[in-house]
Design a protein around this nucleic acid. Structure first.
Lengths: 337, 337
DNA sequence: CTGAAAGCGCTTACAG
DNA sequence: CTGAAAGCGCTTACAG
């Protein structure tokens, strides 16, 4: 009476075992590749599996192995418009690298000092490890991760060098760009920077200072404007710098740089004829500006890929370098000629 | 000899049952709230649980219930710079809404016509449902989702109205903005649009046309430039429009609008004195432009929140509206005065 | 109201 | 090389 002519529904290894007259154990081993199974049996199982498009239930496997095959990627909830291409590219690279090793990425979007989203994920035991997309001084999330003993990797420099981290060499990059500008004899420089709570801004400041030390020039401390967040603060800083006859405006990132450029335009100062402009962070907007802006470029895909590999290797129990340092490019453009 | 004075490690409901002299069944029921448990027992369990910061293993629960408490969020891998704030905000809203209901979000980044990332996630049975962040005509991902019978919701209009989708009323929004411009007597209009494969661009075109029909004016078919992707194509289109004495440049999105503005500047045409400009998609860049650009604004957080609720309700077996339509705002700014 | 038992779909000692 | 059995940490009929 029943119609059983349809293609059998294969839901789990039990079904396969029944069809093939094997035990679940053997089927499991043939699929996973772990444990010894005869060539013939393995081939039989594998052919069956691919014929029926069977994929083992990753959740069940995880439960048995006490793993989840998921990692969490923590990204800032709010970000300036201009930082996003960088973030997106590194997210892309993380996802791709994870997928290559059959891991999935859980998204945790949170603001600074807010880690409930990550806490929920850890409480629910949904991930094997975590990737942090930026680093802050005194980040409560770090304490949470350390307390829970969850393996994690930070994209960006961390205060504690014993923690896993991967970063571009911002210090050296900023030092080199600053030194080049000094060598071009752009001596009246000003530096515009954001929150020093972002460790990357500390690195940038450090690089800037090192260039002066290297060249043997005196640091223009009165022209270093930091903790700039709002447009008004920046406008005041730019005006102050103009009063001090600054002729080379160095910005810590592209968002600040965009505001500086806008302000200079309002003040009627032309780039590069009247003043020079450079940025410690590149983006499409820097390249597209008229004139194009000299900037430091970082490969965000490489950053994401490296961080993800580092974490997955760590999860696999491999020996992993704690402190990986990546390179940078100096994009010399018209704004500093 | 042994030191057992430390706080006991509570790993699972078995441990709790042992400590409290109850069965795992009762503990499970007390925690989940399902099934009858006496007030006293429930209280005892709950107090124990919160004292020991115990959280049930979501993966194990999922396996038993045949659920994962995960959803996948599919976002485009490559996106123009300017689209991102919109995407990020809706992603944010999806994550928050999911978290409120104790669901997590798996990130699937993929290009058009490429669905391996999603396929992997579905094959591995890692999610209960899927949210699509944009809609395309003839999207192979849709076929995959339908074939696999995975519940999903699209942010954006779908050709098949029987599928779950939530969208802003782009047609009406574009119609209204166009009509307002026509009523202001900006009759020499041109429309600049991207790929019609993006369904939202179809809606925009439809709205534009409807406004002409509504006002009873003749559609300037020769000034409708579509499928513009590369800057050169757009430049040619702008020049052609200028030749045809177009005085109001309407752009389908902010990215195109930015290019149009740049081109008009190069051609020495001032906004709004010489020509007017409007965009069917708002962003920070439109508001910050000099002059600020009239544009249609959509609440991306509302979009994400609504899509996520729709999906989670669907997964809960609730009755869900198939076709949700959200509003819009007309941001009338200096570029059209 | 409570519990023993079976089950979710896997893995993995252990024994043969 | 292969398999029966126990286990991962939960849920949920079923019985009392």
């Amino acid at each position: 009476m029943e119609q059983v002519t349809e293609k059998k529904q294969i839901q789990n290894i039990g079904d396969i075992a029944k069809e093939l007259g094997l035990s679940k154990t053997t089927v499991s081993r043939a699929i996973s590749g772990k444990g010894r199974v005869s060539q013939a049996t393995r081939k039989k199982v594998q052919e069956f599996v691919s014929q029926y498009h069977y994929y083992p239930n990753a959740v069940a496997r995880g439960l048995a192995e006490k793993k989840t095959y998921n990692i969490a990627l923590v990204v800032p909830k709010s970000f300036t418009v201009l930082d996003l291409p960088f973030l997106r590219k590194s997210m892309n690279a993380v996802c791709e690298t994870a997928a290559e090793r059959n891991y999935d990425v859980l998204l945790s979007m949170s603001e600074a000092d807010e880690y409930m989203s990550l806490k929920r994920i850890l409480d629910n035991r949904k991930v094997d490890g975590v990737i942090l997309s930026r680093t802050l001084l005194e980040d409560p999330m770090l304490d949470l991760l350390i307390e829970r003993q969850v393996p994690f990797v930070a994209m960006g420099r961390l205060k504690n060098q014993e923690l896993y981290q991967v970063d571009n060499n911002h210090v050296e990059a900023c030092q080199n760009l600053t030194a080049l500008l000094l060598l071009k004899d752009y001596r009246n420089m000003a530096l515009f920077g954001g929150e020093l709570r972002n460790i990357v801004n500390q690195s940038r400041l450090e690089g800037f200072k090192k260039a002066y030390a290297q060249i043997g020039a005196e640091l223009p401390s009165e022209c270093i404007y930091l903790e700039l967040e709002h447009e008004e603060q920046l406008e005041k800083a730019v005006e102050d710098a103009v009063k001090k006859h600054v002729s080379c405006f160095v910005c810590m990132d592209d968002a600040l740089c965009k505001m500086v450029l806008r302000r200079l335009r309002v003040l009627g100062l032309r780039v590069p004829d009247d003043v020079k402009v450079a940025s410690f962070f590149d983006s499409q907007l820097m390249a597209e500006n008229n004139p194009p802006v000299t900037a430091l470029h970082f490969d965000s895909e490489e950053l994401g890929r490296t961080a993800c590999r580092q974490l997955l290797d760590l999860l696999d129990g491999k020996q992993v370098e704690k402190n990986i340092c990546l390179g940078y490019q100096l994009m010399m453009r018209d704004s500093t000629t």
